[in-house]
Design a protein around this nucleic acid. Structure first.
Length: 223
DNA sequence: AACTCGGGGCA
DNA sequence: TGCCCAGAGTT
């Protein structure tokens, strides 16, 4: 595992590579952010943004989402995957917001996780982006990058990854860390084709060196 | 821990 | 046309 100092170095480099790292989901308020993040599960932010553009014109409040039949809401988000379940979850979630939270989005991670369709990652994104609460949302990008570089152990669960990152990174940097790692993971340290040959972190990266060795060996075999 | 839900994007 | 993308919930 890398030291705190090494991790800090990595995060600084990621910041240089992606100085504009930010939450890519379009939203104007906590409620729209919550809807956008729930929709974003298992699909790209770009695709969600296409849907929410129209969605947020039509639906402004929790009441609006409950005022239409389920089938209509499903059709409105049809172009993203898992849309049937997501539409159901959004209507349930809006009913709970009205019932228990006065129609407002709670600013507490554990309260958010009680809502249907809201897991740990979604809750962390909402509290950190909408309410400025320090949090590290561990999605597959953050998990993959953490494991490849050695921010955490290979066999760590998602929860263990989050705990390890929180232990190794100063609290003030949790939120920006999450965005930097997502950009780094999505555009550079990709799942299938990581750009190891032009990576400023190659010298620290155990997985990068391993991959390069394997590539060399397969070339040698081919000859 | 493994499985299921799913359409869009891209090769 | 078939693989890849990428969380929550359930068993």
């Amino acid at each position: 595992m890398l030291t705190k100092q090494q991790i800090r170095y990595c995060l600084d480099k990621m910041g240089e590579m992606f100085p504009d790292a930010h939450c890519e989901l379009v939203h104007k308020n906590p409620f729209e952010l919550l809807i956008a993040v729930v929709l974003s599960a298992q699909c790209t932010d770009a695709l969600v943004n296409k849907v929410t553009k129209h969605l947020f014109e039509k639906y402004k409040t929790p009441e609006d989402y409950l005022a239409v039949p389920l089938e209509e809401l499903q059709q409105d988000i049809r172009s993203i995957g898992l849309y049937r379940n997501k539409a159901k979850n959004i209507q349930k979630l809006c009913a709970i917001l009205l019932e228990n939270y006065n129609g407002e989005v709670p600013n507490d991670r554990d309260e958010l996780m009680k809502l249907p369709g809201v897991g740990r990652k979604t809750a962390n994104v909402v509290v950190s982006v909408a309410f400025g609460v320090p949090a590290i949302a561990v999605d597959t990008h953050v998990e993959r990058v953490s494991k490849r570089l050695g921010f955490c152990r290979w066999k760590d669960s998602v929860l263990e990854v989050e705990e390890t990152l929180m232990r190794k990174i100063p609290k003030e940097e949790w939120s920006i860390t999450h965005h930097r790692m997502i950009f780094f993971g999505r555009y550079h340290c990709k799942a299938q084709a990581p750009q190891c040959d032009r990576c400023p972190l190659f010298d620290l990266c155990r997985e990068g060196k391993k991959r390069m060795r394997q590539r060399g060996e397969s070339r040698a075999r081919a000859k």
